[in-house]
């Protein structure tokens, strides 16, 4: 059948001519020549009316195949040419990728609040909730209820700012919050941490401040032991410093706890080998703790024959200093941007 042969030839010629076309203009001309109204292919469609009833479907199918083949080849060719043109144009566009980016202001929490949040989060997971109380405090809450009566030698342990108002001081520790919390919650069991600012009559030096934060903790209940104190605080240290860190508890003295203990954490800088951070001891003093003194439990409304408890207190500034090797505590309230921007 001649027409079918002609169609084969039309396809072959068309594809060959397309391969030779190399720009949009040539493609347009090719389209007119091979797919246009006057093309051989269209002539073949037109000639179908002269064919026999038997030939017509065969030629028709073949003519459509050829049309599709040419159109799809054209599309491919067009896309290839467009890609080539784009690539040619992009090759001239080069950034200096090493130039600095456009700076965006990065907001930051004060480093001490960053540490406080870590402390809150760790204790929250152990069931300790945050309880806050006032900073300008009565002498009774700061001392007397905490088993530190007037003229007691233990009062020497705190250098106190006294106000001009009788019996009113700036709290020297967050411990008054223990009494506030116990009086509010008694007879429930208690697990709270008590963060906040405290004040000491102390010269401001690289190592000491007259205003600093403390985070105190208090657990009270019918079945709380010194072993629980050790376990809870060791868990805390492992989460704050590293999972392997070792702790040790040294006997110490605080009037509001008995027995009292200082917790040392194995120096996380030298891993206990001794370095300048731990002053060669391998240990860092992190917090004071102890079993709540019966006098304090009583002041809070609890019966020390029925319940026991532990309490602890730590300095978030000191912990921040250790974590980041900050050597001067005065950086914190100085708020020099060159310091703050590092956290």
């Amino acid at each position: 059948m001649d027409t079918l042969k002609q169609l084969d030839q039309i396809e072959k010629d068309g594809l060959a001519a397309l391969a030779a076309a190399s720009d949009e203009e040539a493609l347009a001309a090719w389209r007119t020549a091979h797919l246009g109204r006057k093309s051989g292919l269209m002539a073949a469609f037109d000639g179908m009316k002269d064919l026999t009833k038997e030939e017509r479907p065969l030629v028709g199918r073949r003519a459509n195949e050829v049309k599709q083949a040419l159109e799809s080849a054209l599309e491919k060719k067009q896309s290839a040419l467009r890609m080539a043109a784009l690539e040619a144009s992009l090759s001239g566009e080069h950034l200096d990728v090493s130039l600095p980016g456009r700076a965006q202001p990065l907001g930051r929490l004060h480093p001490v609040n960053q540490t406080l949040r870590r402390i809150y989060a760790i204790f929250a997971e152990m069931g300790f909730q945050v309880y806050r109380s006032r900073e300008v405090e009565s002498d009774d809450y700061n001392f007397t209820f905490l088993n530190i009566p007037a003229h007691h030698p233990a009062r020497d342990m705190w250098d106190t700012f006294h106000t001009d108002r009788e019996g009113v001081i700036l709290r020297t520790h967050t411990s008054p919050g223990q009494i506030h919390a116990m009086r509010e919650y008694c007879p429930e069991t208690i697990r709270v941490i008590l963060p906040g600012m405290v004040y000491r009559y102390e010269q401001v030096t690289t190592r000491s401040e007259m205003q600093f934060n403390q985070v105190e903790g208090l657990a009270v209940g019918p079945n709380i032991t010194f072993g629980d104190l050790k376990g809870t605080l060791t868990d805390f240290a492992r989460r704050l410093f590293n999972p392997q860190v070792r702790t040790r508890f040294r006997a110490s003295h605080f009037p509001f706890t008995e027995p009292s203990a200082e917790m040392d954490v194995e120096c996380f800088v030298c891993m206990g080998d001794g370095c300048s951070v731990c002053k060669g001891t391998g240990w860092l003093e992190i917090l004071g703790s102890g079993m709540v003194h019966p006098t304090v439990l009583r002041a809070g409304g609890y019966d020390p024959e029925q319940v026991s408890g532990f309490a602890f207190g730590m300095g978030p500034e000191r912990i921040t200093m250790l974590l980041h090797r900050i050597t001067d505590i005065r950086h914190f309230w100085r708020n020099d941007v060159r310091f703050l921007e590092q956290f």
Binding site: Q129, R191, G221, K230, R248
Partner: peptide, 19 residues
Amino acid sequence: YDNIPETRLADVLPPQRNN
């Protein structure tokens, strides 16, 4: 103090409150 074992709190958890 070294010889006292470390234990986890097993006491009654107090009512949980938000701050």
